Simulated scan of single mutants.
Amino acid sequence: MNTKLPATHRFDSRDPDTIHAFLTSAYGTEMTIRAAEGYRFRHHRVDAGPFCLETMEQSTRLEIDVGRIGALVVVQVVSGRIDRTCAGVSGRFGPGDVFLAAAPGRPYSMSWLPGRVKSCLLDLSVLAKVAGGTLPGRAGTIRFTGLAPASPALARLWRHTTSYLDHVVLRNPYAYRQPLVIANAARMLAASALAVFPNTITGRPAATDRRAATNATLRRATAFIDEYADRDIVAADIAAAAQVSLRALQLAFRRHLDTTPMAHLRRVRLDRAHHDLLQADPRQETVSAIASRWGFLSHSRFTARYHATYGIPPSRTLHA
């Protein structure tokens, strides 16, 4: 996964031609926009590489036809109303509602009344990687079978996830400068999207997965984690290294360690952070910098987890 430092972009215009040119460039697709002359459109984007978080606001009724966008676009209405149609599926969304703008790779249309929305653009490769779509036996691409959340509780999950990433990660200079932090944030969004919106990555483990969930599989997986804990790896990479399916890997960890592959990876990274704290010069290093280096998104959560594991706060280890 390619990562880069988040970059902030702002746009504000009342000129329809300028707005049209900006939107087609920002989303990399053709658009048709019908609106009154002289309306105002404002756009704020934080581009983290594998994902972007945006806020948009406009002052009229917009009728927009959008071509195919090479990303998963999740929209949250803050104020106003949006009527969206994609592949014959229509929906009306008001304040607090969350929805997919389109099935990936499909064009869509929107009627947007004056108001404000937040959106997230997520690289499809992150989605496929989190779902294990590149592994042998995992067919093709992910298909979303619904464009609205499976439940109101899951809609809240999406809102909380994006709010957390915006406030805790992207506004933390220690965090967003670390490639592992941005990669973990992207995977958090992908995992949330797969949990929130109905899709084809579902079902129970097959009999072959249960047979493959052995101690040998676990040994191969943990050896790979130990070697590559400082890299941007996901459960699909671990499964590939262990030569099993993603579900077989998950079963192996649950059966033999009563945990998950990613939870085990986080524990290994916590141990590496502990080692760095022991070796660090407190005049040159900070707890936040070391935590971010090992992919921990939140300083407070890292501190709580560290204290629960080692019995003392990480600051005491650093200054010991």
Rank of each mutant, 00 (worst) to 15 (best):
T208E: 15
A242H: 09
R116M: 13
A183W: 03
E227L: 01
S111V: 14
V117W: 09
D17S: 13
P152G: 02
P136T: 04
G105W: 02
K118S: 13
V75D: 14
S315Q: 14
Q76H: 10
L62G: 07
T18D: 15
A240P: 10
S111K: 13
A289H: 07
H319T: 10
L23T: 07
H299C: 03
L23P: 14
Q279S: 07
L257S: 05
G70E: 11
L5M: 09
Q279P: 00
V130S: 09
A289Q: 07
G28N: 12
P173L: 04
Y310P: 05
R81G: 11
Y39P: 04
T8F: 13
E285V: 08
E54M: 04
G311W: 15
L127I: 02
A273S: 03
F197I: 06
V77E: 04
F51V: 04
I201Y: 11
R305Q: 15
D209A: 10
V268G: 07
G146P: 03
S151D: 02
H9M: 11
I238H: 06
I182E: 09
T134H: 15
R219E: 08
T85H: 12
Y108R: 03
R45S: 14
R138D: 14
A191I: 02
Y39I: 01
P282W: 00
D226N: 04
P107D: 13
V287F: 07
D209T: 04
L113C: 10
R116F: 08
W158G: 05
S245A: 07
K4A: 06
A206M: 07
P149L: 08
E54T: 04
V268A: 05
P104D: 12
H264R: 12
T317C: 03
S192R: 05
E30L: 13
Q250S: 10
R92C: 09
R255N: 03
C120T: 03
A101I: 04
A183M: 00
S288M: 11
V181S: 08
I290T: 02
A35S: 12
E30P: 08
D47T: 09
H299N: 09
A185T: 01
A263V: 05
I312G: 08
H160C: 15
T134W: 13
S192Y: 10
R138N: 15
H9S: 10
D123Q: 02
I33M: 13
W158P: 11
P282C: 04
D230A: 02
V244N: 10
E63Q: 08
R92L: 06
S292A: 15
I201V: 14
G137C: 05
M110K: 14
T259Q: 00
D166G: 05
V89F: 10
R106N: 11
P6R: 07
D281Y: 13
E63I: 05
L297C: 13
D83R: 12
E57I: 00
E63R: 11
D209S: 03
D258T: 11
L157P: 12
T309L: 09
A291Y: 06
S109K: 10
T217P: 09
V98K: 11
V244R: 06
D271V: 01
D12S: 12
W112L: 14
G88M: 05
H307I: 01
